[in-house]
Design a protein around this nucleic acid. Sequence first.
RNA 1: GUAGGCAUAGCUUAACGACAAAGCUCCACGCUGUGACCGUGGCUGAUACCGGUUUGACUCCGGUUGCUUACCCCA
Length: 428
Amino acid sequence: MSKSLRAVRGMNDVLMDATPTWRHIEESVRQILDSYLYREIKLPILEQTELYRRSIGEVTDIVEKEMYTFEDRNGESLTLRPEATAGVVRAAISNGLVHNQRHKVWTVGPMFRREKPQKGRYRQFHQIDVEAIGYAGPDVDVEMILMSARLFRALALPSIRLELNTLGTAEARHRYRERLIDYFGRYSNDLDEEAARRLQTNPLRILDSKNPALADIIAAAPSLDDDLDDASRAHFDTLCDWVSAAGIEFTVNRRLVRGLDYYSRTVFEWITDQLGAQGAVLSGGRYDGLYEQLGGKAAPAIGWAAGVERLVGLYEACHREKLAFQPHLYIVAVGQPALREAILLAERLRESLPGLNIDVNYDGGSFKSQLKRADKSGAPWALIIGDSELQSGQFGLKPLRNDDRQQAYDESGLRRVLGQLLSDAATE
RNA sequence: GUAGGCAUAGCUUAACGACAAAGCUCCACGCUGUGACCGUGGCUGAUACCGGUUUGACUCCGGUUGCUUACCCCA
């Protein structure tokens, strides 16, 4: 095996066995987002580095040490997108979508962060990203949460829970930040290295620390509640009330902060314990100040992102049966003239029955070995073409899931039976 | 960046310091025409790499690389 040819660390090949699950998830997402009238957009995976520095925040882990940044041939600094929201905001500003307009959009694709790979965390990973631009909420906040709950229901993923919090306005957060610096500063001798560094840069992040030695100090830390403005409080109360009314269970987690600096007011996170240490499957929040911060017209907005690899992992953890891509019909052709007819017949069937997936055996071999392959293909039916079928024009259709022998149909009979099969499969 | 575990055939795993094995997959055959189960046969490896100890190393020791899990952070 060649040593020089291998995939880049943390960047995975998603092979044939896995793609049916990916497709199922993507199709479920598409269907649900359609039902809420969110429109798909497609954005570049490269942006100017400046965009991420200004949106995510200079002192976040992402910007400090995780971005794939390089110089273009003309000297411009470019970065592979580490998340989607900044790109959506940039696109909305670039295309004038925030001038007396509101938009609900979504996009999906690869993101890149140079972290140490582990279960559920890769250097190239995929996110589904949904954004409501120009909506002040809290009604749309509720909608965001309900649609994500709907997604988990559609995919039958029960082992997941919702946490909510509010971060208040930027001003409230600023006041709170000052109080935290004051509070944690009094314990500066007890803080670990990480916390001490964050004390100056991003004290809210200290609340995220899992160091048991700090647990008591963190537990007694001041709460954002005291700095919360009335409008944010009302916003959050309505949100909680409406989400409850919709029958969605959640817990309020005052420590839920999110790792990107642009969030304000609503933040939420769907968490599972099925994926090792990487529990966050889908999370999001409101970012009312970001448009202005990036030089656009001020616009309230909220969004969420889901990790596709994590959804896939959770799906596999929750479902015993593996999804597979199988043909509806497998054609067994004995002999060269039969193969010719098989190819032509398959074309006619695909033409008249869109959605019918037909596998034709091109490998030759004895009748028996072909039938074996037909069985292994997973197809419910085998179509048998040999000399006698060519002469009679009657094709042999054999069920593969029981011992029944083949039945003879002419081509129109075949179309009828296969059409029935297709509609049965669709209602399953 | 820090720490642990792992590395043998396409896959999963055996082999006390002395023959490199098995199962699965794949292919063929079992009277060119009724499959799955079954039977018989076949294909497949510098035991990750480099060095050391030893009469002898897949096995012990050192290093390298890779993978993986966890800390951290996050989707």
